[in-house]
Write a protein that binds this DNA or RNA. Structure first.
Length: 197
DNA sequence: CAAGTGATTAGC
DNA sequence: CTAATCACTTGC
């Protein structure tokens, strides 16, 4: 069953980032086959106050506009000339918080993901934010999609306990001063699809 | 370890 | 308009 709007509207972004671990990300193909994967790594971006967030200081540009949408909206951006990144917008409208999905573990129709990724070892299929977008077929047209729609959504899958979750610094945001140190990255302990140890 | 890639952004 | 930067991946 799809996660309901209330899941995304809570005002505790860090809690939502942890709650997303173990959820199933589903992206049906044109032929309506379920391609899905379990979320195993996330990073919280706390909007206006977070120097690492694109929406720091409530910066509103054509790109960041999506972050100001209501919780449950998909925010996609393009990076390093070749990769897309998949984010879940959370909180009320005009509160530009988002959670980056950094890694997932393939669950349904793995062979479709393997085909999209070319010849890659199993553990390299979806073990990074750019990789998982390729495997799941996510690109720029998913930007601004509603997670309660038919194109992409999240479902309950596995229930984790606090002991299953590790946290640490976020990746690739050294420019963010003291915010680079915040332990706002979360992952499933010992899962081999997590992007970095 | 460093190149590759092009949208996005700030600054003129 | 121009130039620097970037929430990354891969193959050397």
């Amino acid at each position: 069953m799809k996660l309901e709007r209330e899941f995304y509207l809570r005002d505790d972004t860090i809690q939502i980032a942890k709650d997303l671990l173990g959820k199933l990300l589903v992206v049906p193909t044109a032929a309506n086959e379920r391609v899905s994967a379990m979320i195993v790594e996330t990073e919280a971006y706390l909007g206006a106050i977070d120097k690492a967030a694109h929406s720091y200081g409530n910066r509103r540009t054509k790109r960041t506009e999506t972050m100001f949408a209501i919780g449950g909206t998909v925010y996609i951006f393009f990076i390093y000339g070749m990769y897309f990144q998949f984010n879940v917008v959370v909180g009320e409208k005009d509160s530009p918080h988002a959670i980056l999905i950094r890694a997932v573990e393939p669950v349904e129709n793995c062979e479709i993901m393997r085909q999209r990724r070319g010849k890659m070892p199993e553990k390299n299929l979806t073990s990074g934010p750019g990789k998982l977008c390729i495997a799941l077929g996510i690109d720029k047209i998913f930007n601004n999609e509603d997670l309660l729609g038919e194109k992409v959504w999240l479902e309950d899958y596995k229930t984790l306990s606090a002991g299953d979750i590790s946290s640490g610094r976020r990746v690739g945001i050294d420019y963010a001063g003291e915010f680079a140190e915040k332990p706002w990255r979360f992952w499933v302990k010992d899962n081999k699809f997590v992007s970095r140890k």
